[in-house]
Amino acid sequence: MNARSRHVRQAMAPVESKHAGLWITLAVLGMFLVLALAFSYVGWTSSSDATGHQMQQMSTSGYVAMTLGIVATLALGVGLMTLVFYSNRKGHDEDANADRSR
């Protein structure tokens, strides 16, 4: 083995270990996602609670209210994040920090 190939292998070792950590992290997060979806499906489709009493199904107006709540929450989150990025790009964040340094 020559010095160049040994140097290349040593330089590539940290990159390979970083990719391994990334794949392990993605695998664990994927497992959590599958477990959350399975738990949600079982909870959504069960027709009785833990004591065996029959549960009432959600009405159409309940689904509409839930959908409107989700849409409003997402719109609020997107709007606030848009303002954060806009403020950062226009330099307003630096102006606020300049006032503190006085």
Rank of each mutant, 00 (worst) to 15 (best):
M1K: 12
H7N: 10
H7G: 01
V8S: 09
R9L: 15
A11E: 04
A11Q: 11
A13W: 01
A13Q: 12
P14H: 00
P14K: 02
V15A: 10
S17F: 00
S17I: 00
A20H: 05
G21F: 01
G21S: 02
T25K: 10
L26W: 07
A27L: 09
A27C: 07
V28A: 11
L29A: 13
L29S: 08
L29H: 03
G30N: 08
M31P: 00
L33E: 08
L35K: 06
A36W: 04
L37H: 04
A38T: 08
S40K: 05
Y41D: 06
Y41N: 03
Y41C: 04
Y41F: 14
G43A: 12
T45R: 06
T45M: 05
S47V: 03
D49A: 09
D49W: 12
G52F: 00
G52V: 07
H53K: 08
Q54M: 11
M58K: 13
S59L: 10
S59N: 08
G62N: 14
Y63M: 02
A65Y: 07
T67Q: 00
L68E: 13
V71C: 10
A72L: 11
A72H: 03
T73H: 03
A75T: 08
V78P: 02
V78I: 10
G79W: 12
L80V: 11
L80T: 04
L80G: 09
L80W: 10
T82K: 15
L83Y: 07
Y86P: 00
Y86K: 15
N88Y: 14
N88I: 06
R89I: 02
G91I: 01
G91S: 04
H92L: 12
D93Y: 03
D93F: 04
D93L: 02
E94R: 07
N97D: 15
A98N: 03
A98R: 15
D99I: 11
R100L: 12
R102P: 06
